Computed example of a mutant assay.
Amino acid sequence: MHSRIICLLICLVLTRPDLLTASEPVWPGFKASPWFEEQVAYLHLKSELRLIIVAPRPERIAAGKPNRVVLFATPNGNTIEQTLGCQKQEGRDWHFEIQQIAAQHRQWQAWNPHENLVMVCLEAKGLSWPGWRARHPDNPALIRNLLQNILAAIPLNSPRLTLACHSGGGSFLWGFLNGSDQIPDQVDRFLFLDANYSFSVADQHGRKFLDWLRGDEKRQLTVVCYDDRNVLFRGKKVIGPTGGTYRATGRMRDRFAQDLKFQESRAGDLKLETALNGRLTLVTHLNPKNQILHTTLVGEMNGYLYGMTLNTPAGEHIKLPTGPRQYTPWIQPEPFTEAVDSSD
């Protein structure tokens, strides 16, 4: 049943444009959310993927504005509902409170009235992107096809595409990069939130990013990480001798430095390394107290907001990924929930 939803959406969009007028409460296949004048649609795909699309209701979408779709890959062990977040409540799973991607996205929209923004949050079966890719050796092609199907199901003209992730969600983005020798022109921003573990020179990730960045001065690559080399959990290091995002960010810098000149600066415990007038930005929290900052970088330090607004007019509101949270009025009271389809 769910596998037919995308086809239905695409057919409705292509054959009945009159259905997309502002007088309609929601797009075909979507349901009205009780919060923030949004509409949502859940999709299930045969390739063991589940996703939610969260968009402004049609009356809030201005036809003359540029459109942008953000694809956010969940961290390992988190559902799409937990990743998007909701208010903290006694007895509620703590995962719902730590990232708050939906609330950060809404705050970005409030700061950025010049674009129509749509959020797509993706989850792999088993809540592990590396595990999903291992089960699907053809994952680069699956990911590329998935993105085109998602864009076809969203009735907006020529949307720009932003790819973002946290933690193991980075594996989804590396699968995307491995799918072609070039990054598609419609992508103009990448954001890795403590998620760049698998950056690979051998897989030409550095060369692909460089070619892409040089192709348009509006493109942005941002990486946020922390020094995780000596972090302990229950007395043991959480990262092996060659792993972690701190070392991965170092590999990225070393590769890019072969072609680019970096500028380095410090702001408190943050080290910023930038090139191409800031369009390539590597942010490292030096973590002098050896704390686990894996999710703190995202939720408490406004990581998503920082990455989405960097080098845009909305970036005037948040100069660095630091606290306190700047999006609390936009946190929904309850989690998103998927209606049960009795015909399945």
Results as ranks from 00 to 15, higher is better:
1 M>I: 10
2 H>E: 08
5 I>W: 02
15 T>P: 03
25 P>T: 11
31 K>W: 01
32 A>H: 04
33 S>H: 09
45 L>N: 07
46 K>E: 11
48 E>A: 09
54 V>T: 08
67 N>Q: 13
76 N>P: 03
77 G>V: 08
81 E>D: 13
84 L>V: 08
87 Q>Y: 01
92 R>H: 05
102 A>G: 04
105 H>D: 00
114 H>P: 02
115 E>I: 10
118 V>D: 05
124 A>T: 13
129 W>G: 12
129 W>H: 12
137 P>I: 07
140 P>Q: 07
143 I>Y: 02
149 N>S: 15
158 S>R: 14
171 S>Y: 02
172 F>M: 15
174 W>L: 08
184 P>K: 08
195 A>N: 12
197 Y>I: 13
198 S>D: 15
199 F>C: 09
204 Q>Y: 02
214 R>N: 14
226 Y>P: 09
229 R>G: 04
230 N>S: 15
243 G>K: 14
246 Y>S: 13
264 E>H: 08
272 L>T: 05
289 K>A: 06
290 N>G: 05
291 Q>D: 13
294 H>D: 06
301 M>P: 03
307 G>S: 04
308 M>N: 00
311 N>Y: 00
316 E>Q: 08
324 P>R: 08
328 T>P: 03
336 F>H: 13
337 T>Y: 00
337 T>R: 15
341 D>C: 11
